[in-house]
Simulated scan of single mutants.
Amino acid sequence: MHVAIIGGASTIGSTVAYTLAGLAPTVDVSLVDINEGAAWAHAKDVSHASYHFSNAPGETVSGDDIGTVQSATPDDLADLDPDLIVFNAAAPQPEDATDRGARDAELDRNLSIVEDVAEDLRPLDPTPLLVVTNPIDRLVYQFYSLLEWPRRCFLGYSLSETARVADALGSELGVHPNDVYCPMMGEHGEHVVPILSRARVGGDAVATDDLDRDEIREYVLDIPFDIAKERGVDETSRWVTSAGVTRVIRSVMAGSTAGGDDPRGRLGEPFCLSTPLDGEYGFEDLALSVPVDLDEGGVDEIHEWDLAAEEADELAVAADAVRTDLERIGAKGYDS
């Protein structure tokens, strides 16, 4: 499998490449960036790191099977022929972008980058595209509008929230967060929707009626900005994001391999990614995080769950927020 990371010299892009080298060492990675020198330097450094991963104690991968890590520029995209594209390019963040309102300004800053990258991608055959740049749901739909590839190709990363809500629930329930599953639907932002009705611990349903729903959501929304305040906006939540992005990539790989690992992972439950909707949950002409199964072409299936009334109402609020921004930028389906 060949993964092209657009914005590969960035903090997140380079960390994703490093994480793939350790957890999915057979994957070929291209770090695509307008900063050719930085992309080359990260690619070479990660290549050197792969030496230690492949020669570590335990199960290893031989040199004949190890993936390559290389640098490239956006002009090279048509020749790379990737199996999956990670879009992580973004305008620089202001130094004071350490509160939850910071995401609101990112749409206008990053729209022109999306338009330029869409032109670079147009010569490619339809390819799964995983958007990591904020605001994710809006940019997923904008790529869909511009490229007009099948909607199953478009994915928006939102698994960091799944890890954060597991941390909050694990603390409340007195269990290890790694055993907690609670899907997070809706918007990657203020209108995230914790699906507490489907919360599980070790695969078993748990009672969540006594939990403070608003408090849990506030923790999920606040913690990335608490991290940014301590480490700086350039660092962001690089570790959880790179691990989550790698999980998506490995799930695509597993879903495309007959008899391979379960693409859903150890907990055996779907996870939620943003993708364009066409009637699912009563919404269309926008992208929201919904439960999906993946295969080599991107979204294989969207699950339509029966949600609690409160969850369905919150999902509608998230849809309205995304729709308002898409109307403002004149995305497909909202042209005036």
Results as ranks from 00 to 15, higher is better:
180 V>I: 09
188 H>S: 08
221 L>M: 06
178 N>R: 14
200 R>V: 07
182 C>D: 09
213 R>K: 00
227 I>N: 12
196 L>C: 05
212 D>R: 08
199 A>M: 04
178 N>T: 13
185 M>C: 15
189 G>W: 03
208 T>W: 13
215 E>H: 06
198 R>G: 09
225 F>A: 13
212 D>S: 02
210 D>M: 06
185 M>R: 15
208 T>V: 14
222 D>N: 08
224 P>G: 06
207 A>H: 14
203 G>I: 03
188 H>P: 06
220 V>W: 08
206 V>H: 04
185 M>D: 15
209 D>T: 11
185 M>K: 14
217 R>L: 14
220 V>F: 10
197 S>G: 10
212 D>T: 09
177 P>N: 01
209 D>F: 08
226 D>C: 15
178 N>L: 12
219 Y>P: 05
178 N>K: 11
175 V>P: 00
182 C>S: 11
217 R>T: 13
220 V>A: 09
193 V>K: 09
198 R>D: 13
226 D>I: 13
225 F>G: 13
186 G>A: 05
204 D>I: 09
178 N>F: 12
178 N>P: 08
205 A>K: 07
178 N>V: 12
186 G>S: 04
207 A>Y: 13
203 G>D: 07
195 I>W: 14
212 D>Y: 08
186 G>V: 04
202 G>L: 01
219 Y>H: 03
220 V>Y: 10
192 V>H: 07
214 D>A: 11
